[in-house]
């Protein structure tokens, strides 16, 4: 029974995806037939071709590496900062100007500055991804700490836990789902930011691939990059949702 339901769920899910491609196909072959709007099969053929000659891998891995490094860096910095902000009012007051001010300046607005500061290479990209990740992670983590039920902490103290133990065995695990949620949102933002940054200034990456294709009017190649972006983003997000689910089943619900 359970397995049947699950299969049904997956089936409906795949159907949803199939309909996306079907609509795309209908639109590109009958509604707006144009060399500027390739149908799905043409894009897939092109994708296979680009995958064979290594171009696709080169650009996709460049973008992924930047996202991976920046995202890891931003999370690694953001989690402890968020924990500190959530735990200590002094730290909150000290860092609030940064979080409250900077989070309204989008990473895309900083692309030019980043390139001037860190050059056209990896430095500027990783800086931008760290920047776009860190505030979301900080804010979600801090909110998670603030949301820990005071009775959980009181209970631990009455069971003999010291302040450090309360932090590591109560506050931290109780905050994990919030941290994961923040990281998941930050991951989506990283995809937006990396493409924008690569469009403006980069030697490789999916954004650069789109830009180059535009110069030579290789519309199907643009679509390959878009398709790959969608797939990579989707996979990354799935992995995170799975992570949240694996933990959050044991936690109070978030998101």
């Amino acid at each position: 029974m359970k397995r049947e339901n699950r299969l049904k769920g997956v089936g409906i899910y795949l159907l949803g995806f199939a309909s996306l491609f079907a609509i795309w196909h209908v639109a590109a072959t009958w509604i707006m037939p144009s060399v500027l709007f390739p149908p799905p099969w043409q894009v897939i053929v092109k994708a296979i071709e680009l995958a064979r000659d290594g171009t696709l891998w080169e650009h996709a891995s460049a973008s992924l590496a930047r996202i991976g490094l920046g995202f890891a860096g931003g999370s690694l910095l953001g989690i402890p900062l968020g924990l500190a902000i959530g735990s200590f009012p002094v730290v909150r007051r000290l860092l609030e100007p940064y979080t409250e001010f900077l989070r309204f300046i989008p990473a895309t607005a900083l692309i030019t500055v980043a390139v001037i500061w860190f050059g056209i290479g990896e430095g500027s990209k990783i800086f931008l991804i760290i920047y776009t990740t860190i505030f979301i992670v900080i804010i979600n983590t801090a909110a998670g700490v603030a949301a820990v039920a005071p009775n959980k902490i009181r209970a631990a103290r009455a069971l003999g836990a010291g302040p450090l133990q309360v932090f590591f065995f109560v506050a931290l695990p109780a905050t994990v789902p919030y941290i994961l949620t923040g990281m998941r949102l930050a991951m989506a933002n990283s995809f937006v930011t990396i493409v924008a940054a690569e469009l403006v200034a980069a030697n490789d990456g999916l954004g650069r691939m789109i830009w180059d294709s535009r110069m030579y009017m290789l519309v199907d190649q643009i679509f390959v990059a878009l398709l790959v972006l969608g797939l990579l983003g989707f996979t990354a997000d799935r992995l995170f949702r799975w992570g949240i689910y694996a933990f959050a089943g044991r936690f109070s619900p978030v998101t």
Binding site: A149, N151, K152, A155, A158, L159, G160, P173, A174
Partner: peptide, 17 residues
Amino acid sequence: DADRGVVFQGDDSLYGW
């Protein structure tokens, strides 16, 4: 301290994880 055990009114003091 551990010499005084507390039982709370609600269940929000339990550790869900």
